[in-house]
Nucleic acid binder design. Structure first.
Lengths: 143, 143
DNA sequence: CTACATATTGAGAGTAAGTATCACATACAG
DNA sequence: CTGTATGTGATACTTACTCTCAATATGTAG
């Protein structure tokens, strides 16, 4: 099901399907947490060592264009690639205990941007950010 | 004044002052917008070509430790180094027209984090983000 | 003022992420 | 099934850091 969905989303975005893209999307799909560039490349190479480095980056770029993958980047850390369930632009909550990344819906972010516009006269165009902390599941486990 | 303040802030953080650090802090201080790694290195080299690459990065790291510099990073873009007026952790509003970066005060961000905690059961530890758009000044100029 | 322990520097090599190039291969529209 | 636009792999290159190490400078204690 999920695999078919990713295929559909790639096609819907006007991108071609190739075995390499299928494989790379599959790796991202099964990863429990964001993969670094080298982590992704190694995981892909383990499944098919003939896939080149450039193809991995090109595929990630294609998946980003299709809105399927997002790149997380944080100062001082290597950036990570993440397959997103939510369509379109959105933000992330990253749990520092379990590494799980969940999507932050527009409803939560919208009022915040509205505040910025009214308080600072700053017209928000876009923002891409991740909030780090402890997810509900991990909090419960810590009681 | 500003230079003295930066010196004080470096010392207060328990970091040593060296001519190189003074010079690099000065470059960041006069930069109107965030400097990329290479931009910073080139600007520094123009003032003193004997300063090594490693020193520039080490100094930036020391200034980050002292809370004087923040690194902006955005997916798909080179990260930028920025001298911050505000002490402590904070966030930025980046104007896409004039490049000006202003600080986003805790008062604006706090309620947003509170919403995340109450709506998602997600305990926020930290977040470092930049919001892109058009600042009040540029908006006025566009009327 | 001097000496010393400790931190910092510069040079240069090394690593990781990502991009460019180009001949060859393949997806998919017609 | 054929043609063409697009994708692929190999490889070289660029940018952004990081590491090492001998030489040097900082700030403190005497």
């Amino acid at each position: 099901m999920a695999s078919e969905t990713v295929r559909d989303r790639i096609l819907a975005a006007g991108e071609r399907i190739t075995p390499q893209r299928d494989l790379i999307a599959g790796v991202l799909e099964t990863a429990p947490r964001p993969l670094s560039a080298s982590g992704l490349y190694e995981a892909v190479a383990r499944l098919d060592p003939r896939i080149g480095r450039a193809t991995v980056f090109r595929t990630v770029a294609a998946l980003e264009r299709a809105g399927i993958v997002e790149q997380l980047s944080l100062p001082g850390e290597r950036s990570g690639y993440l397959l997103c369930a939510t369509v379109g632009h959105h933000h992330h909550l990253v749990c520092q205990r379990c590494g799980k990344v969940s999507d932050l819906p527009e409803e939560t972010v919208g009022p915040f941007f509205a505040t910025i516009e009214s308080d600072h006269g700053f017209s928000v165009d876009h923002a891409s950010f991740s909030v780090y902390g402890t997810c509900a599941g991990c909090s419960a486990r810590l009681v």
